[in-house]
Amino acid sequence: MKRLSKIPSAGLIAAVLAVAVALPFVVSGYYVQFASKAMLVGMLALSLNLVVGYGGLVSLCHAAFFGFGGYMLAFMTPEDGGASLWLSLPTALLVVAAVALVIGALSLRTRGIYFIMVTLAFGEMLFYLFHDTKIAGGSDGMYIYFKPELVVGGRNLLDLESARTFYFVALALLAGAAVLVKELVGSPFGRALAAARDNERRALSLGFPVFRVRLTAFVVSGVIAGMAGFFSASQFGFVAPQMLGWHLSATILVMVVLGGMGSIIGPVVGAFALIGLEEVLKTSFEHWKLIKGLVIIALVFLLPGGLRQLATLLMPERVDASATPAKPRSDEAPANV
């Protein structure tokens, strides 16, 4: 049974990768750029899922890490040329890691609703830091006139100006992040994280260092989010405080739930679905946010398991027990919906 279900999923991954690699050679530049953007946001959603889905911690500050990564690139891009990836990327990730470490260490002292509120508040602190002060153009944001460069022996190996090159960089980053999260979740570390989610008291009494495990997951997830933000800023050549705002944090949370929390790649599917939907709605309706809001409300009530649930409803024979998404519980037992 297990073997049977594994083979198609490996085949599926290969097929998706083949399509992803072939895509920039068959579709127009608009779609290549759109797919690059969606993959980076998908990477952000995937990073959030490590904390929300596998850690049971509903964080509302991941956009802040994403935006911080972007702002770091803006700070380190010189006036007359592109920033060196060798220097700027590690620096950006280190700074984001430090920020995530401080916010995580404070927020993880709390549980449940408190954790949601505290992460939201710290995320907004970073938003107001960039919005209200003059350090990075205030509410107007900052332009990044030159893409970062990967120079070896005087030659730039990575021409990020080319949409196709950028697409493959985004694809590689997303694949790398997916492999990293998959390895983490499957490792003893991931088991400890899930154990703490399912029953914190029991995990503690078994001797798991719950706080340290959660903090590590929070920082790793923040760094992946920061990396996505770094390249997202490079794609658009612009950073603004909205990149750090909690509306983006909530939107990626929607993507995670839409795609399903039970899998590594689900949130990426959710990101593509939601961004695609937004793109269609924006061109067709003036009040598209109203429809987006109604879609989110419908998701909560009609499809709490996300698109994965829809797939199992349409193809009941593919149901397998491991696919049921694990959710952070409130103090009451969840009602059957």
Binding site: L290, V300, P304, K327, S330, E332, V337
Partner: peptide, 23 residues
């Protein structure tokens, strides 16, 4: 309908409500 559900569902519902109320 959300009293028994997890906080995540409440976060998403109220975020959806914000978008609807704003529009």
């Amino acid at each position: 309908r959300l009293y028994g559900r997890d906080h995540l569902a409440q976060v998403l519902l109220s975020f959806g409500l914000i978008l609807v109320i704003d529009e």
